[in-house]
């Protein structure tokens, strides 16, 4: 059978491995719709991901991509963007991949304002490895490694991205597929470091341990918890077990890393060719 988004899926890779009702597929769905609506050439987009359930996405899209080692999606994406600034480079990965093992790369990519769109599927745990706690697991939540409840305090990814100077920041839930799609379109066209966090149900691991119920029930709960607000300051973008503020939190402009780098390379080489400066090779 044919689906309107078929041409964006890599032949032979579908059905994907994600569990029934896993939100990762809703994020993929929104991403493909965004690409389709923008009329982008599939060959000009590169999807980079790390390891985890969400990380498998780079193999499902019919676009160039790189399925990196755990935590290293952002450095590989920076390399691609630096070498080929004309490409649109998108990182799509999980909370654990991007913010536990890969956290440091996020800090510096955002700080440098590298022109990437980073989409984080935040399902509050390490789904792929059996549901361990991670840096976004809510306090008191149950996971394989917090059987009596999580005693740690979770990261607020939106507030973190804001403190690092990301130029576009949004948070949505998979219960907001339209807003998510529009936001991805914004992120794809924005120059600079864009970050979109997507709250998404890991039905099998996180959901089961925290009694979120079957996919429809989990969805119903998320719809209650995730509220859209306009004009909220990132410091007030609350993300807690019973209340998650979603929306766009920042959209500003600022000089971008790869553009500054290539401008500098051009300027320096011109000066060198005129003999005005000496370049050590």
């Amino acid at each position: 059978m044919t689906h309107p988004l078929d041409r964006y899926l890599r032949p032979g890779m579908i059905p994907h491995i994600w569990c029934p009702g896993c939100g990762n597929g809703i994020i993929l769905n929104a991403f493909l719709r965004a690409v389709d609506e923008l009329g982008l050439d599939q060959d000009e987009i590169v999807v980079v991901s790390g390891i985890g359930c969400m990380g498998r996405v780079s193999g499902y899209v019919n676009m160039d991509g790189f399925h990196t080692t755990h935590g290293r999606a952002i450095p590989v994406a920076i390399g691609i963007k630096t070498a080929r600034p004309e490409l649109k480079v998108v990182v799509i990965s999980g909370d654990g991949d991007l913010f536990a093992i890969g956290g440091n790369h996020f800090l510096h990519a955002a700080r440098r304002n590298v022109d990437l769109l980073v989409i984080c599927a935040n399902n509050f745990n390490y789904g792929m490895t059996g549901g361990q706690m991670g840096p976004t697991t809510p306090s008191k939540a149950y996971t394989t490694t917090t059987p009596y409840g999580n005693i740690e305090h979770p990261l607020n990814l939106v507030y973190l991205a804001a403190s690092l100077g990301a130029v576009y920041i949004a948070r949505w839930c998979v219960t907001h597929p339209l807003q998510l799609k529009e936001s991805i379109k914004r992120g794809l066209t924005k120059r600079g470091f864009s970050f979109i966090e997507v709250v998404t149900p890991c039905v099998t691991e996180y959901g089961r341990r925290n009694r979120m119920g079957e996919p429809r029930e989990f969805m119903r709960r998320l719809r209650e918890i995730c509220v859209i607000r306009r004009g909220v300051d990132p410091s007030e973008a609350v993300i807690e077990a019973d209340r998650i503020i979603c929306g766009e939190f920042r959209d500003v402009d600022k000089p971008e890393f790869t553009q500054l780098l290539w401008n500098m390379i051009r300027e320096v080489s011109e000066k060198a060719s005129r003999g005005e400066i000496e370049v050590a090779l």
């Binding site: 689906h3 309107p4 809703i26 769905n29 597929p177």
Partner: peptide, 29 residues
């Protein structure tokens, strides 16, 4: 084919496409 409960159509579709946007498996259009 994968063992889940197949949804069925029991009335006249209004064409809002909410199902299409929410389906994690791109299985409904």
């Amino acid at each position: 084919l994968l063992g889940g409960a197949l949804p069925k159509v029991i009335g006249e579709c209004i064409g809002c496409r909410w199902c299409e946007r929410i389906c994690p498996d791109l299985a409904i259009s």
